[in-house]
Design a protein around this nucleic acid. Sequence first.
DNA 1: TTGTAAGCGTTATCAG
DNA 2: CTGATAACGCTTACAA
Lengths: 336, 336
Amino acid sequence: MATIKDIAQIVGVSCTTVSNVINGKSGRVSAETIAKINDTIKELGYVPNMSARSLVSNNSKVIGIINHLIVNKQENFMEDPFHSAFIGAIEATLRENGYYLMLRTVETSDDLQTFLRNWNVDGLFFTGIFKDSFYEELTKLSIPIVLIDSYVSHRNMCNVGLEDYKGGYLATKHLLEHGHRNIAFVSPMIKENGVLYQRLLGYKQALQEFHIPIRSEMILQAGMDVTSCLRTGAKIAARNDITALFATADIMAAGLIAGLRQAGKRVPEDISIIGFDDLSISRITDPPLTTIHQDANEKGRQAAYFMLDRLENRTLKQREIILPVHLVERNSVLTI
Amino acid sequence: MATIKDIAQIVGVSCTTVSNVINGKSGRVSAETIAKINDTIKELGYVPNMSARSLVSNNSKVIGIINHLIVNKQENFMEDPFHSAFIGAIEATLRENGYYLMLRTVETSDDLQTFLRNWNVDGLFFTGIFKDSFYEELTKLSIPIVLIDSYVSHRNMCNVGLEDYKGGYLATKHLLEHGHRNIAFVSPMIKENGVLYQRLLGYKQALQEFHIPIRSEMILQAGMDVTSCLRTGAKIAARNDITALFATADIMAAGLIAGLRQAGKRVPEDISIIGFDDLSISRITDPPLTTIHQDANEKGRQAAYFMLDRLENRTLKQREIILPVHLVERNSVLTI
DNA sequence: TTGTAAGCGTTATCAG
DNA sequence: CTGATAACGCTTACAA
């Protein structure tokens, strides 16, 4: 394993010079030396030791992508296809810029602290953060933090979000415009000022514009998992006061459709449904799902750009980016 | 940021002693000193600097999980829900044992080498490796490597696999037993001795047992993506020589069902179909999908166990584990 | 039972 | 233009 020392010896210069050349601080090194050093680096297949760098420079090139175990201890944080899609995009962008991604699950902010100091972690990604004590601890950290899908705002952090409110509004309005008046909102547990809360507000706004009263029995909770959605679909089928459904995720919508169908209801003839995300699954449900589109890759990429800007101390034009949504019309909504 | 030195100073011992206590080599340290050191560690919130450790011990606690960009440069390696599911399981198991997971995409074996030396990577996970030049380079590495879903075998590596052959056999036999004689095999590109190749062999074996000739026009290729599956579904619908389909992944089966349906064919009335994986999606297709079950979490866990055994130099009872499959019957296969 | 000191690979400071 | 040298935090002979 070649080191800077080896190179220095072979070329006949000092470590300093080699280091300078490697780090582009070669203003004061002769072109000849530079060439020789670079040649030798290639020849020996020299690769910098990041640990050594990290040790001396108090920073690593390690970025953590953190899964905070909160509610569901069992949950495997890769299971949401949307989640994993943008992790890929983050990795790609970061890698192209010389950074490394560590995947890490933490339970407490102490866990996180330990992890950070273990590796001198340079930056952190989080998704779906809420204003809780864990969040409060985050605000105290001095490294760049990029939050995804989190309705919290702090001067130390960047946010990549989505037009959730608009998405909820568009979805609901679409149903309303198709004559629906009894529209249920189906989502996992809604936390104050989270993504789902915003979508709910959009839902309410649309109803209000159409002078439809907001009824709590129309706001349904279901897990993201298939079992829960099937069950909820069956429950909805058993009621007769619902003509349309807005589900806050395509995978939920797909499960609901199945649950409704298994209970003898047809979509969209009996019940219309609209989803959220525009995952590829929405093209293969029966019927193909009308849904609110968002771009997972773009989300990851924007998050990574924010991170890079902060890491390289570029001044940010903005601390927040809200990605657009739009409605994609397929065949799961029928006019009544 | 507290260091070993700080602790040593406060307690009034040397760094050596602190280090020994931390590393459990405290046989020759008085109980009193140990207690004092541990107290101080807690008090200062001392956390070991992994870079420093790595530097001096020529190993890190970093395990790489590698995505090898081969064919499809665009591909986002998190997109396969199955893939991402077991990554979560790997992270959990490794973390509980003091290791860290780095996610990394590489294009060439040089990329990989660089990555390994950057961080003194201790071990590596790969999925879907084939006997190619990249693989040849892998065999030369001296760190533990765990291969998942890869039909290559090497004394340096461990394998976590699946009864792919049996899965292919069971699926096909199931169709045969339901009276089907014109059964198509639909999969992505089949590489010599990969997972899909084994499933194909199982398919062929079943056909042979039923004295059905193997016809190349029954072996169809489609990508894992929705577009490709929809297209293939439509193509199959246009032929009239196929009564049943074996798709090598549930997400493909789901796409095929949609493609068939959109082309006016009903499943299973017109065409029966069987999938592979038993992802949760198989419960919400219409009809619910008969499929071959495998356990993604278990795959990840077993892979992590192998890694841990190798890392801690435990002697392995076996270098390979083949996880079982079984058929899950739902409603996508009809007797004819 | 504990301490000293060298060294891991790199960067930074400062002197030549 | 280039080189010594110290320092980063930790482990490990070896010494006491």
